[in-house]
Design a binder for these strands. Structure first.
Lengths: 253, 253
DNA sequence: ACAGCCCTGTAACGAATTGTAACAGGACCT
DNA sequence: AGGTCCTGTTACAATTCGTTACAGGGCTGT
C-alpha cells in the first residue's frame, strides 16, 4: 500500500530461462512454485487462534479478515484482494479468521519453509518480508485512526478512496470500484452499523459524489471531494507539523 | 502489551561477569551496550514522517505515540513503558511521533546496525525482532477492535485492565496502577473525549470497581468485573467459535 | 499567601449515531 | 410464475456521546 518493492515480476527471467526450479530469493518466486488452491465464497482459509502454519498470497478474489468478540460482535480487520499477501507477521497464532468473500484462488507457503529460506537466502527475501510487515503495520495504524477519530461520513469516504487507490486507478477522473463484500462487512470494518453505511452511501449519492451501480459497484465521481471528506488520510501524507513540545517539562504530569 | 517476551532483564549476567563486550546475539545485549539518553517530559524522541533511523528501548518512564491529522485532531496510537521496545517494524518512515510523557531514559540502536547484526548473527536476534513485530501487530489489532466495536465504558475498562496487565500484576486482587498520561492522552487513545473518560471513571468509581488516588493512580478493585466489562478482550483469548461458514457459497456476493 | 494557570471533574444540553421497524428489490426454489 | 429468503434502503424513535459551561484542586511564580 505504501511502496512497490513488490516489483511486478520481471525479475525471475534468468532462472526461468535456465529451466530451473523457480528461484527462492523472492516472494514471487516462492509463491509461483506453489499450486493454486480454490475456495468458494464463505469458506474459511484459516481460523483465528490456529497455529499460523502458512503465509498466503491471494491470486484472485477477495478475502475478509475478522475476529469474533465473546459477545458475538464481529470486527472486520481488513480485506485482501488479488495480488496481496497475508499474514507475514505471524510469529504466534493467526490473529484473525480469513474467509472468502468471493470465490478465491490463492497460493500458500509453509511458514517453516519461509523462515528457512529467509535465513539462508540473500537479503532480498528478508527485505520483502520486512516491507510486507511494514505495510501491514501501516494499514493497521491507518485503520486505528479511521476508527478512533473519524466520523461515519469520513470513514465511508476513506473506505471508498482506499478501494479506488487499491485498484491503482488515477485520481481526478471517475472510477468504477468493485466492492465485492456486503454492506455488513463494510459496517463491521468501519465500526458502523449497516444502516449508517447505507445512509452515508445514499447521502454521497444525493450529493453527486458517487453513483451506485448495483450492490457491488460504486462509481466515484468527485474523488477530490471524497478525498477532502476523507480528511486526506488516504496516503502516507504525514501532516508533520512539528509543534514544539509544550514546555511542560517541569510538571510531574 | 500481550506477552512478556521481554524478560525483565537478568539475562546479561554471564557476559557482564566475563567483562567482555556485551553479546550481540540478543536485543537486550545490543541495547545494554548503548548509553542511556534522557528526555524531559514533553520532549519528542522522534517525529512522524522522519526516516526511521533507530530502534528504541525505553528504560524508564513513559512515551506516548501519536499522529496529528490534517485538521489538527490527534490520534494516540499507544503508550510505551520501561522495558518495552519501539519501532521495530519500521522499514519506511516513522508512522508516529514519540513523545515523553514523564521524564524518560532510553537506549537507541541504529537501524542499519540492527539489520547488519540480524543478518550475520544466529537466529536468536531475528527471532526476537519477529516476536516484537508480532507483538506490535497484536497490539494494533487489539486497538482496532477496541476502537471499532466497544462502547465508551468498555474501552475504558479495557484500558485499565491492559494497564494492570502490563505491570504483570496478578488478577483477582486489587492492584494499584500508575497512569502517568493525562486524561486527554487517554481520550485521544480511546477515541473519546476527555469528558467521557471522566464520566466513565466516575461511574466505575461509584460502582466500586475502581478507586482514584490522585490523578495518576487508579486502584482496580473489581478486576473480574472490569474484565467482564472489557469484553474479556484483554488477553489473546480468541473466542474461536468455528462458525461453519454460512452456506452462501453459491451467491455471487 | 496570593493570583493565575492548567488539568480535572461534573452537569445540562444538543448533535450524531444507533436501534427498531417497515418496505423494496433481486436471487433462488419449487 | 409465484413464493420465499436475503440484502439493502429509508424513516422514526432511542441512546450514546460530544459540546458547552462552570467549579474545584494542585502547582507556579510573584
Amino acid at each position: 500500500m505504501y511502496s512497490s518493492h513488490l516489483a511486478p515480476s520481471g525479475h525471475h527471467v534468468p532462472f526461468a530461462a535456465l529451466g530451473l526450479t523457480p528461484k527462492t530469493t523472492t516472494l514471487e518466486g516462492l509463491f509461483s512454485a506453489q499450486p493454486a488452491e480454490t475456495f468458494t465464497a464463505g469458506q474459511a482459509v484459516f481460523w483465528e487462534g490456529d497455529a499460523s502454519t502458512h503465509v498466503v498470497q491471494v491470486v484472485e478474489g477477495c478475502l475478509r479478515l475478522y475476529r469474533i468478540l465473546p459477545d458475538g460482535r464481529r470486527a472486520v480487520i481488513g480485506f485482501t484482494f488479488g495480488g496481496e499477501v497475508l499474514g507475514v507477521s505471524f510469529q504466534g497464532p493467526y490473529l484473525y479468521t480469513a474467509e472468502a468473500v468471493t470465490p478465491v484462488r490463492l497460493r500458500r507457503i509453509s511458514r517453516k519453509r519461509m523462515i528457512e529460506v529467509a535465513a539462508t537466502s540473500s537479503g532480498t527475501l528478508r527485505q520483502q518480508l520486512m516491507d510486507k510487515m511494514y505495510e501491514e503495520m501501516s494499514a493497521a495504524q491507518h485503520l486505528i485512526i479511521v476508527l478512533g477519530q473519524l466520523s461515519a461520513e469520513e470513514r465511508v469516504a476513506n473506505f471508498l478512496v482506499a478501494a479506488a487507490q487499491r485498484t491503482g486507478a488515477d485520481r481526478r477522473k471517475p472510477v468504477a470500484v468493485e466492492l465485492p463484500m456486503s454492506r455488513l462487512d463494510i459496517a463491521d470494518y468501519l465500526g458502523l452499523t449497516i444502516e449508517t453505511v447505507c445512509r452515508v452511501f445514499s447521502k454521497l449519492k444525493r450529493e453527486g459524489l458517487i453513483a451506485l451501480e448495483g450492490r457491488h459497484q460504486v462509481i466515484l465521481r468527485g474523488i477530490a471531494a471524497l478525498l477532502d471528506l476523507a480528511g486526506e488520510m488516504d496516503e502516507d501524507r504525514p501532516c508533520g507539523i512539528r509543534v514544539p513540545a509544550r514546555p511542560e517539562a517541569a510538571l510531574p504530569n
